[in-house]
């Protein structure tokens, strides 16, 4: 088993997702079965194969290095669950 209780807690913490005990158990089962299944990739010889990260065959053009102003802070803040004097507001982080 690749994923145990400790591992799932660690991943959940890295992902900033709170899991209850029932969910943790379900995800341990799911993730282990998925990881067992993807294990078959080890059959493939990938020696000297370059990893592919961008599939596009077209040449990606550069844009001109000029500044532009596309957003106002008002627009950016429009959907914020909480805001204060032109800033996003979050729970207090320093006492």
């Amino acid at each position: 088993m690749k994923i145990d209780k400790n591992t799932i807690n660690k991943i959940a913490r890295l992902s900033r997702i709170k899991l209850d005990d029932k969910e943790s158990e379900d995800y341990i089962k799911d993730l282990n079965s998925i990881l067992d299944w993807v294990e078959q990739l080890n059959e493939v010889n990938t020696e000297n194969v370059e990893p592919l990260s961008n599939i596009s065959s077209s040449i990606l053009p550069k844009r001109e290095d000029v500044s532009n102003d596309t957003n106002s802070s008002e627009e950016i803040l429009e959907n914020a669950p909480d805001k204060l004097e032109g800033f996003f507001a979050v729970p207090k982080v320093v006492e």
Binding site: L41, T46, V49, E50, P51
Partner: peptide, 8 residues
């Protein structure tokens, strides 16, 4: 590994 298989 997956990115390499993707190349193949």
């Amino acid at each position: 590994k997956a990115q390499k298989v993707r190349k193949l």
